[in-house]
Design a protein around this nucleic acid. Structure first.
Lengths: 231, 231
DNA sequence: TATTATTGTCACAAAATGAGACAATAAATA
DNA sequence: TATTTATTGTCTCATTTTGTGACAATAATA
């Protein structure tokens, strides 16, 4: 990895949303021997499209291709420039500062959020990290630099876009119940929705295909399973 | 201007919207002796916040402070990298390529749109340009690089955000009629709106203050003037 | 004084939304 | 087998929002 392989001053960070246990979660990495938690991020190769760089990183971190991905903001304040933080990380990994000096420069970070099917993912740490794990949004560790802000803005954007995006399609497995879908919406919005109205609206969109019922073994009526259908 | 004064690989472009003659317009600059039209843009100083760099550029181009400004996308495709274009511009201005070699590198561009009061602006070209003028959105010249895409995405974002933003407040003078306001909305959306419903909705927002009537000298009822009011 | 163009407001229909009610039903329980 | 429990699918009704046209008011003109 030569110094010239990456564009200087430019990084990306990704807020990778998954849904499990009725909670919205995101992937967080922890750097070796530092106690520092961060969003999965990376750099852009000299001859690589920005969007492709992010997809490459997502693939490495989750194993998935063809992820639903949305760029939402570019963070460029000078206050982001904290070379001592990156230096700590590099030193904790035994890397020579000389080779990675370019990493100590000021970076502008393009932030993306991704929506993925939780059950398909095998979170994988990168070379500098000793873990890459799911954290509930309401139980995040302290994140380094402005990564907390980035998460907040990602969630805000996701909420704003909720009506315009097929969110459930990306956060749920191929077959799901109406209750599953409602729980996803409630987790994102952070509020309870009326069951009847929600069902009416979702069915009214005309994008759900009804399948056989799901017999859960529980003592009540079995719900239908649904899948999303491109019209 | 030393090479190290600016962050490498990072630029911004701005889509500056104004409203005049019932049309939505944007500012376009034309580079000396090249026939190249472009969005007003610039670079970020090493010790400058990204957002501040954009405001600095806007101030130079329009003379205005405190502009309504919204970042909407960052363009990072390799296809943007066309050093011969920038070289043409520099040579046409008699600049030595050596001094400005950093400008020939690949750039990632953070795009913003601004909403301004047309009548307050004195468009001012920068050093490389011989004009900075208003163009109607439906009558734009061919723009260099991907600037045409940037304009399209800016307009799309503006439309999407129309209900969440006080657009009229930024595109109109302090006092305006309900008809003026409706024309702004129609220009942005590109469609006619029903007069009665529009008036009902705007008044229902509770953010308009009614003033004296405007006697236009025309042969019909005089409309009220309105201003926006922070609640 | 009648005419013209535009404005402020309303009335009504249509559509969308909020909220509760009820029957249906899969499994557990008596 | 009959009853109970929890949840589901659907419906109805009230409320709110939206789409559409109509009307009187009015500033200037003919």
């Amino acid at each position: 990895m030569k110094q010239t392989a990456y564009l200087r001053h430019i990084a990306y960070d990704s807020v990778i949303f998954g849904f499990s246990g009725e909670k919205l979660k995101i992937l967080i990495t922890k750097y070796h021997n530092t106690g520092l938690f961060a969003l999965p991020g990376g750099f852009v190769k000299i001859d690589e499209n920005l969007n492709d760089a992010v997809r490459r990183g997502l693939k490495e971190r989750t194993g998935l291709d063809n992820i639903y991905l949305e760029q939402f903001y570019t963070f460029g304040d000078v206050a982001r420039f904290r070379p001592e933080v990156m230096q700590t990380i590099l030193e904790a990994n035994g890397h020579s500062i000389q080779t990675y000096e370019w990493m100590l420069d000021r970076f502008i970070s393009v932030a993306y959020y991704a929506l993925i099917n939780y059950s398909e993912v095998v979170p994988t740490p990168d070379a500098l990290s000793d873990s890459c794990d799911w954290y509930s949004l309401d139980d995040l560790p302290e994140l380094m630099l402005d990564h907390g802000n980035i998460v907040n803005k990602a969630l805000q954007t996701l909420r704003d876009n909720l009506e315009r995006q097929l969110v459930g399609m990306n956060l749920l497995p191929p077959l799901f119940t109406m209750g599953d879908l409602q729980k996803v919406y409630e987790a994102i919005l952070g509020e309870k929705l009326h069951r009847g109205a929600f069902q009416r609206k979702m069915l009214g969109l005309g994008i759900l295909k009804r399948h056989d019922k799901q017999y859960s073994g529980a003592a009540h009526k079995a719900p239908f399973l649904y899948s999303f259908e491109a019209k």
